[in-house]
C-alpha cells in the first residue's frame, strides 16, 4: 500500500514543499477508497490528470474545488458510473473499472449517494422514496419495512413529511429525504455531491450536522464533494483540494486553510484571479476589438 504524503501532485504539501518538512506519518490510515494514477478523458478533453488520493475508512473526507474541476466526475468514477481510461480505482479492495455489472451492483448496495438535485423519484411520495431501495433489494415484511423507513425519516427529522410528494418539499427537505434514502440499506460509504449547494444557512447547517452525526453514529465512510469551504471544512477529518483535474492541496482542514500555495489560497479566499485565471483563454483583446464585424 502506498504511504501517502501530505503533498500535492505538484510536489508541494498544503503548507509548502514536502522536502522542507520531511516525511509525515500516514494521516489517513486504513483506506476504503484508493485512487492511483487516474486519468479520465471525455472526447479529447482531459478531465482528470494522473490523480492520486485515498479516502480513510470511517472518516469524513472533503473533496473541494471550483466548478468544473472534475469533482463530480471523480465521484462517478468511484461509483462506477464512468470508467477510467487509465489508473486504478479501488473501493474496499475491489477494482471498480474491472467489475462486471452484477459485481458493480453488489458493490453499490453497500454505497449510498446523495445527488446535488436529490434525485428523488417524482412519482413516489417521501415514504415510498425511502422505501424504494429496501423494496428493490430485500423482502422485508411490510410492518418491518415501515419501521425501517420511519426510523430513517426520524433521523433526518422528516417523519412527519412522509406523505408529501417531492414537488411539495423545499430544497433542504428534498436533500434530507435523499439522505434518508441513501442510508436506507445502511451502506459502508456515502458519497455526497455538492450537498450544500443552493441551501439557506439553516438548511446547510442541518445537512452538515446530519453528515457528521450519521458518519459517527453509523460508522460509515463519507466523501463530501463541495465548493463550500466553510461547511466542508467544518465537518471533515481530511480534505483534498482539486483544480483543473488535479489534486492541488491536501491535509487536515486546518492545514489546507493555512496553506501558502497560490492555488489553495485563491480557492480558500475566493480570489477572482490567480493561478486559475479570470479570463477564459482568448486572443489579444485589442486585436479582437479591431477585427471589425462578425464574431
Amino acid at each position: 500500500m502506498n504511504q501517502p504524503e501530505n503533498k500535492t501532485n505538484n510536489g508541494e504539501t498544503a503548507n509548502g514543499p514536502s522536502s522542507a518538512r520531511g516525511p509525515r506519518l500516514d494521516p489517513i490510515g486504513d483506506a476504503l477508497v484508493e485512487i492511483s494514477d487516474l486519468t479520465f478523458k471525455r472526447d479529447t478533453r482531459t478531465i482528470l490528470h494522473n490523480l492520486n488520493l485515498r479516502i480513510a475508512r470511517g472518516k469524513i473526507t472533503a473533496i473541494m474545488g471550483g466548478s468544473g474541476c472534475g469533482k463530480t466526475t471523480l465521484l462517478n468514477l468511484i461509483g462506477g458510473q464512468l470508467r477510467s481510461q487509465q489508473g486504478k480505482v479501488l473501493v474496499d479492495g475491489l477494482s471498480v473499472p474491472d467489475l462486471t455489472t452484477e459485481e458493480l451492483f453488489a458493490l453499490r448496495k453497500r454505497m449510498g449517494m446523495l445527488f446535488q438535485t436529490g434525485a428523488l423519484l417524482t412519482d413516489l411520495d417521501v415514504f415510498e422514496n425511502v422505501a424504494f431501495p429496501i423494496r428493490e433489494h430485500t423482502r422485508l415484511p411490510e410492518v418491518l419495512l415501515r419501521h425501517v423507513v420511519l426510523m430513517k425519516l426520524q433521523t433526518v427529522g422528516l417523519r412527519g413529511a412522509r406523505d408529501l410528494m417531492p414537488s411539495e418539499l423545499s430544497g433542504g427537505m428534498a436533500r434530507r429525504v435523499a439522505l434518508a434514502r441513501a442510508i436506507a440499506l445502511e451502506p459502508m460509504m456515502v458519497m455526497y455531491d455538492e450537498p450544500f449547494t443552493g441551501l439557506d444557512p439553516i438548511s446547510k447547517g442541518v445537512i452538515a450536522k446530519l453528515i457528521h452525526d450519521l458518519n459517527h453514529s453509523l460508522g460509515i465512510t463519507s466523501i463530501v464533494v463541495s465548493h463550500d469551504v466553510v461547511e466542508a471544512c467544518s465537518i471533515s477529518d481530511y480534505a483534498y483540494l482539486m483544480g483543473d483535474g488535479r489534486i492541488i492541496g491536501e491535509g487536515t482542514p486546518q492545514e489546507v486553510q493555512q496553506s501558502k500555495s497560490d492555488y489553495v489560497r485563491q480557492f480558500m479566499e475566493g480570489l477572482p484571479d490567480g493561478p486559475v485565471p479570470y479570463q477564459y483563454p482568448a486572443s489579444d483583446y485589442a486585436d479582437d476589438l479591431m477585427q471589425g464585424d462578425g464574431r
Partner: peptide, 21 residues
C-alpha cells in the same frame, strides 16, 4: 426528464437497473 433530474442515475447508484425497472 428522469434522466435530466438524475433519477435514472440515482437508481443505478442504488443498484437498481433503470432499464428493467
Amino acid at each position: 426528464l428522469m434522466k435530466a433530474t438524475e433519477q435514472l442515475a440515482g437508481m443505478e447508484m442504488m443498484a437498481v437497473n433503470p432499464v428493467t425497472r
